[in-house]
């Protein structure tokens, strides 16, 4: 965990199971360290005509926290995930339909949002939905002394000065989504961005390993 030097780092261990739910069109359960999220994808399906869009699929994201009570923070997460997934999905192939993404938080020990984005990407891969590219989310914390901590643990998040989340796409490793909390300098931001971009490679390799495992038997 954390960063030893710039080119030698590892992320928290990732464990994943695809097709976890038998009835949904695509589902994935992902554990990043101790944070666990379950995502189910359904679609393209029929939706109410007033929410249909004639040029692309409508994406609907539902986030259920552990407590079960919907909150404003959940709406924020839904929005981030919705916008991230909209760039990834080739919605123009499924006009006038709806795609629903249901997320259930199971355990939160730091990095919930990154785990959710990665899990959503895996569920979309499992559903066979046409996608422009994949996405990988990486978080980075700035600790009390100003050092960068990649994929911080729960304690590190609590004591951190700032928290930066980045989502990259798989084609050119461009930034898709970025959101930050706390205060930090511009240089810190640039450095965190560069490090997270390198680390995103590991997540994409993880996706490839998973697909390789099942692709020889289907």
């Amino acid at each position: 965990m954390g960063v030893e030097d710039e080119n030698n780092f590892k992320l928290r261990p990732m464990k994943c199971e695809l097709n976890y739910l038998s009835k949904s069109d695509g589902s994935a359960i992902l554990a990043q360290g101790e944070t666990v999220v379950l995502v189910s994808v359904n679609g393209p399906l029929d939706i109410k005509s007033n929410s249909q869009s004639i040029e692309k699929a409508t994406l609907e994201v539902l986030f259920c926290g552990k407590g079960g009570k919907p909150s404003v923070a959940d709406r924020f997460k839904e929005n981030v995930i919705k916008q991230t997934c909209e760039t990834a999905i080739l919605g123009c192939l499924y006009p006038r339909t709806g795609i629903s993404l249901t997320i259930q938080e199971l355990e939160d020990y730091g990095g919930l949002l990154t785990c959710t984005v990665n899990c959503a990407c895996l569920a979309l891969l499992n559903s066979g939905m046409a996608m422009r590219h994949m996405v990988a989310a990486i978080s980075c914390a700035v600790n009390e002394v100003g050092n960068l901590v990649l994929e911080p643990s729960y304690e590190q998040v609590q004591s951190s000065r700032a928290l930066l989340h980045f989502v990259f796409e798989s084609r050119e490793k461009n930034l898709v989504t970025g959101f930050t909390e706390g205060s930090f300098s511009e240089d810190t931001y640039e450095e965190a961005l560069a490090r997270c971009r390198l680390a995103s490679e590991l997540v994409f390799d993880f996706y490839r390993d998973i697909v390789r495992k099942y692709s020889n038997v289907i």
Binding site: N42, P44, G128
Partner: peptide
């Protein structure tokens, strides 16, 4: 591409 899918298009 041979892929896994459950929903019919």
């Amino acid at each position: 591409v041979d892929s896994y899918q459950k929903r019919y298009v």
